[in-house]
Design a protein around this nucleic acid. Structure first.
Lengths: 197, 197
DNA sequence: GCAGTAGGTTACTCGAAGTAAGTTACGAGC
DNA sequence: GCTCGTAACTTACTTCGAGTAACCTACTGC
């Protein structure tokens, strides 16, 4: 099997097993076996167990970025921008329930570099939100804008975890909850009273 | 050395080394050596490496609960309640910068039971916030109240991490930021227009 | 002065990450 | 239609660290 295809397969299998059992409890031999290949192949392509984990996170991150970019491209005002971005995120999580737990929870633990990958995901989010604020209300205190972005990301992540325990709460409702809490505080800082498009 | 004292010392050393190097990169031999004792003593008192980690988290959790309880005991209205609780949290984080990274990031990774300990911390927080809302606005939708609590906890955690990158932002300012964003959305649901005590 | 136990150690096992060295499949050039 | 190079793969290790068995020692109450 060609390299690219094999790597993709390895990532898929690894993501699944990591999510099932946790990073620590999973052995490279086990992943190799389930891929149908021997352990050194994993090392050939990913360098280390940590490298494999990072590969999983990186792929998810890329996918999330693309979906979000597509979702927000049509927004015309900051509220819509934020809402569409949040919705894209929650939908992504909803589709990846299992892997999500892994990427968020497991990754953090082990390796500094996996940590960085995860932070990269958050960076994407905070940058996006920061950009919304800055473009629509240029006179906002930059530090406060940054804090706001972090708050929204934190709230969103937490609600994503919560969503898993509350099956009745889907992406749309989760988005509403975040917007309800967070938007009034922002609208007060906007130049015009937040036009509803 | 008596058991209780030795255990406390072990926790202190473990917390420090885990925070420095990460959970995975730390060996039990290393911790034992720095404590000045042999490895089986760690196993005698904590059962496993995971047990040791959980011990660290548990101790921090207990301390946080006590500080928070003390801080909010004097609050007279929901806004003050929330503000004092947030402040206590940020101050706790501020005092434990190093350990904080560990408890939040490392714990998640490894072990299901460590995960539970960390969730226990969040549970404390969400329960507290949920209680505030419920007691002051009894007619709120319970699911929405829960969502709100999760949002506040997520926002707070995220801002705590951010605080470490922004040394100028201390507990007081962090509390303000969270309140600024989050409070207007809640105040709208309160029976009276949120009296400032 | 002796018994029991709290606090401690040395010296192992075992499993999993990571590696060295070698093997097979297969397309390009003659 | 053979052969050379390389991409894809394997077997058989080494190494390191979690966890354990078995044994030691000093103090405390009787």
């Amino acid at each position: 099997m060609p390299k690219a295809q094999r790597m993709a397969q390895m990532l898929t299998v690894a993501e699944e097993i990591f999510a099932e059992q946790g990073y620590l409890a999973t052995s490279m031999d086990e992943i190799a076996e389930r891929v149908g290949v021997s352990k050194p192949m994993l090392y050939e392509y990913f360098g280390s167990k940590e490298g494999l984990l990072i590969g999983c996170i990186h792929r998810a991150r890329t996918e999330l970025r693309e979906k979000t970019a597509a979702a927000i491209s049509g927004a015309r005002n900051p509220e819509e921008f934020l809402r569409l971005g949040l919705l894209a995120f929650f939908e992504f999580i909803d589709e990846h329930r299992r892997s999500w737990a892994l990427l968020r929870q497991e990754a953090a633990v082990a390796v500094p570099s996996a940590q960085e990958e995860v932070e990269g995901i958050r960076q994407q989010q905070t940058d996006m939100i920061g950009a919304v604020l800055a473009s629509f209300t240029p006179d906002i205190d930059p530090l406060e804008a940054e804090a706001f972005a972090e708050i929204v990301v934190g709230a969103t992540e937490r609600l994503a975890v919560w969503m898993e325990r509350r099956p009745k709460v889907g992406p749309a409702l989760a988005t509403d909850y975040v917007m309800n809490v967070v938007w009034p505080g922002v609208a007060m800082k906007l130049p015009e009273p937040a036009p509803h498009a």
